[in-house]
């Protein structure tokens, strides 16, 4: 039933299953870059991340939003304005790799716990969630229209 081995769209899949120390954050806590230390950052390879333009693709943002609403909004609100973190709508200059890594690995920060989503959300889907989260930032330059993308 789980989607653990889905082929990603050109991005390296990060297998974090069976990690012994993965902590997580129910509040789906994607944090400010300097605070966004993944639970096992040493295990996150220097991933090939999408370009800044890819992360502005309108189809990615829409797909990321759909996944965010279904998987993340209960804790974070539909626009990332809930959760025990700074609102996503008040962010600027937010490193997409940090967002990606926290989603993938989860995080425990104090009493706050966010589960790791890597391994059960395909890496390409995680990048689409990143695209949506980035689109909420104050310095978002606007979407690049793409129709019928994938």
């Amino acid at each position: 039933m789980m989607n653990h081995h889905r082929k990603c769209l050109g991005f390296r899949r990060i297998n974090i299953l069976n990690s012994s120390v993965l902590m997580c954050a129910v509040a789906f806590c994607v944090a400010a870059p300097m605070a966004a230390v993944p639970a096992r950052s040493q295990e996150v390879p220097a991933a090939t991340r999408p370009s800044d333009d890819d992360l502005r693709r309108s189809d990615w943002i829409a797909q990321g939003r759909a996944k965010f609403i279904s998987a993340c909004s209960y804790c974070h609100g539909s626009k990332g304005d809930a959760g025990k973190v700074k609102s996503f709508t008040e962010r600027s200059n937010w490193n997409p790799q940090s967002i990606h890594d926290v989603i993938t690995n989860g995080r425990t920060r104090g009493s706050n716990v966010m589960p790791p989503w890597g391994g059960s959300i395909a890496d390409d889907e995680i990048w689409r969630i990143v695209a949506y989260i980035k689109s909420l930032s104050t310095d978002f330059k606007g979407p690049i229209p793409v129709e019928n993308g994938n």
Partner: peptide, 23 residues
């Protein structure tokens, strides 16, 4: 609400079947 494929639920993802949700 929206029809949701169980095979696409992530491990930690509740089965809410929502397309929009907020408090």
């Amino acid at each position: 609400t929206v029809e949701t494929q169980i095979s696409k639920l992530a491990f930690s993802q509740p089965y809410y079947a929502t397309s929009e949700f907020g408090f």
